[in-house]
Amino acid sequence: MLGEADGAVPDGVTVFDDEFPAVAGLDPDLLNALRRAAADAAGDGVGFVVNSGWRSPEYQEHLLREAIAEYGSAAEAARWVATPETSVHVSGDAVDIGLADATAWLSAHGADYGLCQIYRNEPWHYELRPEAIGRGCPAMYADPTHDPRMQR
């Protein structure tokens, strides 16, 4: 049975909740940037919740199988869910942030922390791009199928 130890996230988990592997398993630099951004966003009355962070390969495979069933093909599912071998969630290099006000705040301010939305179809998905500080985030991919990292 897959659960929190595999990266499943109960409702209300924040970027400060280290007791959850989905948070604790994130890349330390990504987590530090998220925590700095979340502290500043809180000053604007905005809270960050983690809908997904680090995931085990088994959990990622489960999500991929669910997406294939939902979307009807592996090709269509790939627009939303990566394989365990290519997933930046499995490596701890991505986080999905919840609440619309938080994603709106990150859209406006995330580059100041190196936090960038990577896919146009996933406004909740953020990765660390330190070079974005002072230069802005790179152009987004339409979806993961356009990301060269997903072509392995």
Rank of each mutant, 00 (worst) to 15 (best):
residue 13 V to R: 04
residue 30 L to Y: 04
residue 88 V to W: 15
residue 53 G to S: 03
residue 99 L to I: 09
residue 57 P to N: 08
residue 22 A to I: 10
residue 74 A to H: 07
residue 27 D to C: 08
residue 81 V to W: 03
residue 47 G to S: 12
residue 78 A to E: 13
residue 62 H to E: 13
residue 98 G to V: 09
residue 4 E to A: 13
residue 88 V to L: 14
residue 99 L to Y: 12
residue 27 D to E: 11
residue 94 A to G: 04
residue 22 A to R: 11
residue 78 A to K: 02
residue 81 V to R: 07
residue 77 A to I: 02
residue 27 D to R: 00
residue 18 D to F: 13
residue 14 T to R: 10
residue 66 E to R: 15
residue 93 D to G: 10
residue 9 V to I: 05
residue 30 L to Q: 08
residue 13 V to I: 11
residue 78 A to P: 08
residue 76 E to I: 08
residue 6 D to G: 03
residue 18 D to M: 15
residue 95 V to A: 05
residue 29 D to H: 14
residue 17 D to Q: 04
residue 96 D to G: 08
residue 25 G to S: 09
residue 79 R to L: 01
residue 48 F to C: 03
residue 54 W to E: 09
residue 14 T to D: 11
residue 51 N to E: 14
residue 47 G to Q: 13
residue 67 A to R: 06
residue 33 A to C: 01
residue 32 N to P: 06
residue 88 V to N: 12
residue 32 N to D: 15
residue 60 Q to T: 14
residue 29 D to M: 13
residue 94 A to I: 02
residue 17 D to I: 07
residue 81 V to L: 03
residue 44 D to V: 01
residue 85 E to G: 02
residue 50 V to T: 06
residue 67 A to H: 10
residue 23 V to K: 01
residue 95 V to F: 00
residue 15 V to T: 07
residue 39 A to E: 11
residue 75 A to N: 12
residue 71 Y to G: 11
residue 80 W to Y: 11
residue 30 L to H: 07
residue 68 I to M: 12
residue 78 A to L: 09
residue 34 L to G: 05
residue 55 R to F: 09
residue 58 E to K: 15
residue 43 G to I: 02
residue 97 I to W: 02
residue 57 P to W: 11
residue 61 E to K: 15
residue 84 P to V: 09
residue 14 T to A: 03
residue 12 G to M: 03
residue 34 L to Q: 06
residue 93 D to C: 04
residue 65 R to P: 15
residue 10 P to L: 01
residue 62 H to Q: 15
residue 32 N to C: 14
residue 53 G to R: 09
residue 82 A to K: 12
residue 22 A to V: 11
residue 63 L to Y: 09
residue 7 G to I: 09
residue 36 R to H: 13
residue 46 V to F: 04
residue 96 D to P: 07
residue 70 E to C: 12
residue 79 R to N: 10
residue 50 V to Q: 05
residue 72 G to S: 07
residue 64 L to Y: 14
residue 41 A to H: 01
residue 24 A to Y: 06
residue 14 T to Y: 00
residue 95 V to C: 00
residue 45 G to P: 05
residue 7 G to P: 09
residue 60 Q to Y: 10
residue 95 V to P: 00
residue 81 V to G: 05
residue 60 Q to P: 05
residue 45 G to E: 00
residue 77 A to S: 02
residue 60 Q to C: 13
residue 79 R to K: 10
residue 81 V to K: 03
residue 43 G to A: 04
residue 52 S to C: 02
residue 52 S to E: 03
residue 20 F to N: 04
residue 70 E to S: 15
residue 17 D to E: 08
residue 63 L to Q: 13
residue 61 E to G: 13
residue 103 T to S: 03
residue 46 V to P: 06
residue 81 V to H: 02
residue 35 R to V: 01
residue 12 G to P: 11
residue 59 Y to A: 03
residue 93 D to W: 08
residue 80 W to Q: 06
residue 64 L to E: 15
residue 68 I to S: 06
residue 25 G to E: 04
residue 95 V to L: 03
